[in-house]
């Protein structure tokens, strides 16, 4: 794993939904080595702890990354104050990303709410071999649909209240897709109850499944052991750490 810490220029900033921001950042040395599923650890001016944000797009030729984050508290509100040409202090790229397999013929990407952004680099990798199922609370929280369409992936949109796309949760179109067969892998990021349901469905239909987890984090690189999540390997349970062994885990390894 190779990561650096530095201050990088924000070259584009946009508000893509209510309280949800997108930064495009010029950081060639980070973009060069970043892989889908990794995250960046951002310093929030005046705060002790950095804030982890997953990578939403990696453009190696331009040397840029895109990140999408929601203002959830004072720290993310501080980061959201940064503007175009401001420098953003990042420790990046961090964590263990998704498994990319060129042999896979059909994959399903599941994104729930602010867990959707890390699915975009996967959609861009798998293109028309991917079906992207995303779910949001309501129409005003929907993000990244045009980007998913541009990747060539099939897209299915759900909202809890039915204000856009299909009314209901991502699990029902996921089960329909799995029933049709031929799915090599399911990748998911979003709230824990959604990830648990997705993992169970993937298991039921025998599809390989990887999920990206979130946890309150300290150092971001595996030294402080703060972001523990319970996992099992060879029937032995242990606390893995989201920042280093994750954020992406094989669904079968996670203890719910």
């Amino acid at each position: 794993m190779k990561y650096t810490q530095g201050k990088f220029q924000i070259i584009k900033k946009s508000v893509i939904a209510k309280e949800i921001y997108c930064f495009e950042i010029l950081c060639p040395e980070v973009a060069e080595v970043a892989v889908p599923g990794q995250f960046v650890h951002i310093r929030a001016n005046g705060f002790t702890l950095r804030r982890p944000v997953s990578i939403c797009e990696i453009n190696k030729s331009k040397g840029t990354l895109k990140i999408v984050f929601e203002v959830r508290g004072e720290g993310t509100a501080e980061i959201a104050k940064l503007n175009v040409d401001s420098l953003i202090d990042m420790l990046a790229p961090l964590g263990h990303g998704f498994t990319l397999n060129p042999e896979f013929k059909k994959v399903v990407l599941i994104g729930g709410g602010i867990g959707t952004p890390p699915m975009l680099p996967l959609a861009q990798y798998y293109g028309n071999k991917a079906a992207v199922i995303t779910g949001f609370r309501s129409a005003d929280a929907v993000i990244l649909q045009n980007e998913f369409k541009a990747s060539g992936a099939e897209t299915i949109l759900c909202t809890d209240d039915g204000t856009m796309g299909i009314k209901g949760f991502v699990t029902s179109p996921l089960e329909d897709t799995l029933k049709n067969g031929g799915v090599d892998a399911v990748y998911a990021c979003g709230p824990m109850p959604m990830l648990k349901a997705v993992s169970e469905l993937a298991d039921k239909y025998g599809a390989y499944c990887e999920i990206s987890l979130e946890e309150r984090m300290g150092c971001g690189i595996g030294a402080c052991l703060v972001c523990a999540c319970k996992t099992k390997k060879n029937d032995e349970e242990y606390f893995a750490h989201v920042c280093k062994e994750g954020p992406v885990f094989k669904a079968e390894e996670v203890v719910w």
């Binding site: 946890e215 309150r216 300290g218 052991l225 703060v226 523990a228 999540c229 606390f239």
Partner: peptide
Amino acid sequence: RTGNLSPRIAETPSGMLNSVGLQ
């Protein structure tokens, strides 16, 4: 030692709380 359950960290004014539990 496996340590405590998460969350093990919280931001505080000019500082932080931790309860890793000696993992």
